[in-house]
Design a protein around this nucleic acid. Structure first.
Length: 481
DNA sequence: TTTTGAGTTGTTCGA
DNA sequence: GTCGAACAACTCAAA
């Protein structure tokens, strides 16, 4: 019996996988494969933190396939050559895959489909990466949405995503297995220096880790998610983003499990409706960004609002480096950038503050920040990263008004009131009293001395004055109108 | 075609 | 310390 190839990409799971289920239901042997693909343009090649995650996620996936009497076939190179080649090797009748939405991934699907068709092999592309397909939500005039709120109204009033499918118990093995490369030979882990220690301590990549993460979040944080998701000092967020990015858990599973959890809370008399709505809205933000990318494929490079092409961005390598290393002298910014470096993740509120600081206070181009996040985030996602950086910069779809500039001190005092978050990531100022933890340069010399701090030595002085930088950003924004 | 209401996440100033 | 207004003008989406 001819096998079916299931080509896995950013969907490293067995549960709620339409392509896999379709292959299993066909009753044929299944060959699962993953291509370490070289299709992405150089700038968007796999980032360091993503490579680390992918390595772990593939290990976990290999194991769960093995547990079901199957294997994962690994190949490295260009999918457009390797998939048809593998299909011929195995005498496969068809290739099934789950649609992806990066421009190169879509182009790749088309190219693979054509090659296969030339050899009489069918390719099936099934949805499942998003709540809604990019062409499914349109304004009344048939245009894609450019503003989030009406997008959300349309999404939330349409059919919910289909109920998740169970993971297949067993996969029928082919008569003979095609050759596979060894994951260890791909060199996805960093060697020297090995910066992945903090990542290892923080995350459990893989489908099981993803499900445990979702369960833990829903059981504890869901009811107050709407208020506490803004607090980097508290465990108020789901931390699901890297799991979702690699498809270790499906978006439909997150959606329906959250609804079910909210119902359970309601039955116990605990209000979770606001928390639920806010969580579903966050899932929908991911869709919004993905849809924008599908309709405007240059989103990662080009300002959505074209006026911004004239913005007088500054090139300042020292400032960029200080930002990347968490040495700006603004504790909340530095804490965020160090959390990112250490764990491959940063709290959403702090992402906005650090991004605003780069773009507005330092006036460094958003694309530079986007590139740094791409390399360092375990959840780096082309669409979300690009759309969010553009939003902060003010040039995105549904952009923030230009006068909306985050004040890193005020944001710190509002969302990290006791400085717990700052003290965790910027330990050299941990002994400062709360009143100065977000503004160490205002602390009297006696207090600095007793906290063991010499500004400009043990901790930097602010690299720019926020009030001045704000005024400069406002006039620069004025200049492009 | 025109009109109308609204637009994720903020900050500052003056009462 | 708290509160509301101003910060602009424009585009989007729907009626």
């Amino acid at each position: 019996m001819k096998p079916v190839i299931v080509w896995f990409r950013q969907d490293l799971r067995l549960a709620d996988h339409r392509a896999l289920t379709a292959a299993v239901e066909a009753g044929t042997p299944v060959i699962a494969c993953y291509i370490l693909d070289e299709e992405a343009p150089g700038r968007w090649g796999l980032g360091g933190a993503s490579a680390w995650w992918l390595n772990r996620s593939l290990m976990a996936f290999e194991q769960s396939l093995a547990d079901r009497g199957s294997r994962l076939i690994l190949r490295r190179g260009r999918a457009v050559e390797l998939i048809p080649q593998l299909a011929e090797e195995c005498g496969a009748s068809a290739v099934f895959t789950q649609a992806a939405y990066e421009p190169w991934a879509t182009a790749n699907e088309v190219a693979v489909r054509e090659r296969l068709a030339g050899r009489g092999i069918e390719m099936k592309r099934l949805a499942g990466a998003l709540i809604k397909r990019a062409d499914a939500l349109r304004t009344k005039t048939g245009e894609p949405f450019k503003v989030y709120s009406p997008f959300w109204r349309a999404l939330s009033s349409s059919e919910p995503p289909p109920m998740p499918l169970p993971a297949p118990d067993r996969l029928l093995a082919p008569e003979c297995w095609p050759a596979s490369e060894a994951l260890a030979d791909w060199g996805l882990d960093p060697t020297k220096p090995n910066w992945s220690v903090g990542l290892r301590e923080t995350w459990s990549p893989g489908e099981q880790g993803a499900n445990e993460r979702l369960d833990a979040f829903l059981a504890s944080a869901l009811p107050r998610y709407d208020e506490l998701r803004n607090r980097p000092d508290l465990p108020g967020t789901s931390r699901l983003s890297p799991h979702i990015h690699f498809g270790e858990i499906s978006i439909a599973t997150c959606w329906h499990m959250a609804r079910a959890a909210a119902d359970r809370f309601a039955a116990e008399g605990v209000r979770a409706d606001k928390g639920l709505e806010t969580f579903l809205k966050e899932l929908a933000w991911r869709d919004f960004s993905a849809h924008l990318l599908v309709h405007w494929p240059d989103l990662p490079e080009t300002p959505f609002k074209r006026d911004f092409a004239r913005f007088p961005w500054r090139r300042n390598v020292d400032h960029l480096r200080a930002w990347q290393r968490g040495a700006t002298g603004y504790p909340l910014v530095d804490a965020g950038m160090r959390e990112l470096w250490h764990t491959g993740w940063m709290h959403n509120r702090v992402r906005m503050v650090t991004a605003s600081f780069l773009v507005k206070d330092l006036m460094i181009a958003w694309q530079d920040g986007e590139a740094w996040f791409w390399d360092t985030l375990v959840d780096a996602d082309l669409a979300s990263n690009a759309a969010s950086w553009q939003w902060v910069a003010g040039c995105g779809a549904d952009a923030a008004p230009y006068f909306r500039i985050f004040n890193p001190i005020k944001q710190g005092e509002t969302f990290d009131p006791q400085g717990t978050y700052v003290r965790r990531w910027v330990p050299e100022i941990a002994k400062l009293p709360d009143a100065y933890i977000h503004r160490p340069w205002e602390a009297p010399p006696m207090i600095l001395a007793s906290a063991g701090i010499t500004l400009g030595d043990t901790y930097p002085l602010p690299i720019v004055d926020h009030a001045m930088a704000r005024d400069e950003a406002l006039s620069a924004l004025e200049s492009i109108k």
